[in-house]
Every structure is written in structure tokens, then in C-alpha cells.
Computed example of a mutant assay.
Amino acid sequence: MNATFANNLFRQSIQDYHLTDNVDTPANNPFPADDIAFLLYQKNWIDTVQWHLEDIIRSPTIRPDELVAVKRRIDQSNQDRTDTVEQMDGWFFEQFRDITAKPTARLNSETPAWLLDRMSILQLKVYHFQEQVDRPSVSDEHRQKAQQKLTVLLEQEQDLARCFDELLDDIRNGDRYMKVYRQMKMYNDPTLNPVLYSEAK
């Protein structure tokens, strides 16, 4: 498991989504459910669908009822994204369970899965800025600006990949360690969101 493996899976998910380019297309995850590849693919599929839902909700012609429905889908997507990241961190925690951290080991504030979350979304930015560079109907100025941003994103892709691989190496070597913290989101919980539990009375 390394950054190249993860980024390749993210790219595969993005390419698979764009075969139909439809937010209602069901994910056809090709990996076994007990494989980390399944979670990586699932994570990026959620991100990819949400990326396009975020586009849809910004349409100036969207009807109010459609806007509300898409907003609720985005809320659920955020919950699914968080749940998947936590499952991924659970997988990493099990992989590192038997490693004894050195007395000088440092706690890393960002877990492997939350770093992968950033990497997944970055792959979406790379894909869509490349689309802008390749758009035939835009001006040279538009294309050049898109290319400048794409160049920065590609540099960031290399930086995050290095950071991810170094983090895993450090954990394996006992130089850093991780903890799994649940996000404890409140807005979807009818017992914790004051608007929801007030209306339920």
C-alpha cells in the first residue's frame, strides 16, 4: 500500500464515473469488500459524485425543490465520505497494531486516511483542470490559466504522495503513530441536531 497504488485507484474511479458522467449512476466497485482497494475506490466514487452534485446545485436555473433535494444528497454524501474515511483508518490501525512506537515517536495529527481524502479530491481537481486545458471552445487565455493551475496541482500531487509514503514508513518504523478519532458529526443525528429534535416533539 503506497501513494501510487491509491492514486491509481482514484484515477480509475474517476474514469469509470465519466463513462456515464451521471450522478445517478450506481457505483460498480470491482474490488472485494474486505480489500483496502474497495474502500479507496468507494471513497473516490463518493467524492466524484459529490463534485458533480456541487456543480448542479450552483445552476442559476435550478428549481427550489431540486435545490433542496441536491443539498440533502450532498449532506448524506458528506456523511458517507466521513464514514468511509473512518473505515479506512480502521484498516490502517489494524495494519499497524503490532508495531511498537519508539519512546521518541510523535503523534501525527493527520491520519493516513484523512491524507488520502485530500489526495482523492486532488485527483478530481487534476482531472477537471485537464478538461479545461483540453476544451476546444475556450480562449487561449482561459487555457493558459487552467494550465498554470494544473501545473500547481501536479506539484501538489507529488508532494502529497511523498508525505503519505513517508508517514506510512515512519509509522512502520515506530517514529510516528496514529490514533483513530471519530468525527462525531451532529447535523445528521436527530438526537443531537437541535432543529431536528425540536421538530420531533
Rank of each mutant, 00 (worst) to 15 (best):
D55E: 14
E66F: 01
L115C: 07
I62V: 03
I62S: 01
D98L: 11
A27H: 09
L67A: 14
L115Y: 03
Y41G: 02
L40N: 11
D35G: 03
D35N: 15
H52K: 00
I46W: 00
S59V: 05
F93D: 09
R63Y: 02
S120D: 13
S77T: 03
R97A: 11
R73N: 02
I121R: 09
I56E: 13
N108W: 04
W45K: 00
V70Y: 02
D75N: 10
L124K: 00
N28L: 14
E94Q: 12
P30L: 13
P112S: 06
W51I: 00
R63W: 01
D55F: 07
R58I: 03
P103N: 06
I74E: 04
S109F: 08
N29P: 10
T48W: 00
V85F: 15
L40W: 12
L67T: 09
I62L: 01
F38T: 05
S109P: 05
T100E: 11
Q95V: 08
S109N: 11
D55K: 09
N108P: 03
Q42A: 12
A105N: 05
P30Q: 12
V49H: 00
A37L: 04
L67F: 03
A101H: 04
S120N: 11
W114V: 07
R81H: 15
T104G: 04
N108F: 07
N78K: 10
T104C: 06
P30N: 09
A69W: 04
T48R: 00
F96K: 10
T48D: 01
D98T: 08
A101R: 08
D55M: 08
V70R: 01
R118M: 12
L39K: 10
R73S: 02
N29I: 14
Y41W: 13
I56Y: 05
F31Q: 04
M119P: 05
D55Q: 10
D75W: 02
V49W: 00
L67S: 10
D75E: 12
P112K: 05
I74P: 03
K71C: 11
I62Q: 01
L124P: 01
D80S: 14
P26S: 06
A33G: 03
N44E: 14
P60W: 08
V70S: 02
K71T: 13
K125M: 10
R97W: 13
D34M: 04
Q50W: 01
N28W: 05
I46D: 00
V49Y: 00
S59M: 09
S109Q: 12
R106C: 04
L122Y: 03
